[in-house]
């Protein structure tokens, strides 16, 4: 299982890449593996105001469905519409394909996220 060192993580198996005031949000290798073949991604609407913990997207596989929760508060400024036609990108390259970009309103919230090492340990516990 791949856990890139330059990202942050959540207990909901999401990855976060911080670029200035924006965060890119996707699901981890572990998450896509657990879900199996992803068949549909319901993307958030642009300009949606979110607070930490809001379900902003839904990822569906043949036999499972999983919500994607926003790890930060802010505004959705981009949805990865490529996933509408190619949901399998989340299986193939989970870390190269984000689901949404959020403009953060409170950078302090980033401190609650997990480091790669913590996340790896967290996944090990799940087994």
């Amino acid at each position: 299982m791949e856990v890139p060192k330059d990202l942050l993580y959540t207990t909901e198996h999401e990855w976060i890449r911080v670029e200035g005031e924006q965060v890119y949000l996707g699901i981890t290798d572990y998450a896509q593996d657990q879900l199996g073949d992803i068949v549909f991604v319901e993307l958030p609407e642009l300009e949606t105001e979110v607070i930490t913990g809001d379900a902003i997207a839904v990822v569906e596989s043949v036999k499972a469905v999983s919500s994607v929760y926003s790890p930060v508060s802010g505004t959705v400024v981009e949805s990865n519409i490529e996933l509408e036609d190619l949901p399998e990108l989340l299986n193939e390259e989970p870390y190269s394909n984000h689901i949404a970009v959020i403009n953060i309103s409170d950078p302090d919230e980033l401190e609650d996220l997990m480091s790669p090492a913590d996340y790896e340990a967290f996944c090990a516990e799940q087994e």
Partner: peptide
């Protein structure tokens, strides 16, 4: 499209 249905989506 069974991800819509109760046996997978449960309380959602």
């Amino acid at each position: 499209l069974q991800a819509r249905e109760q046996h997978i989506r449960r309380e959602k």
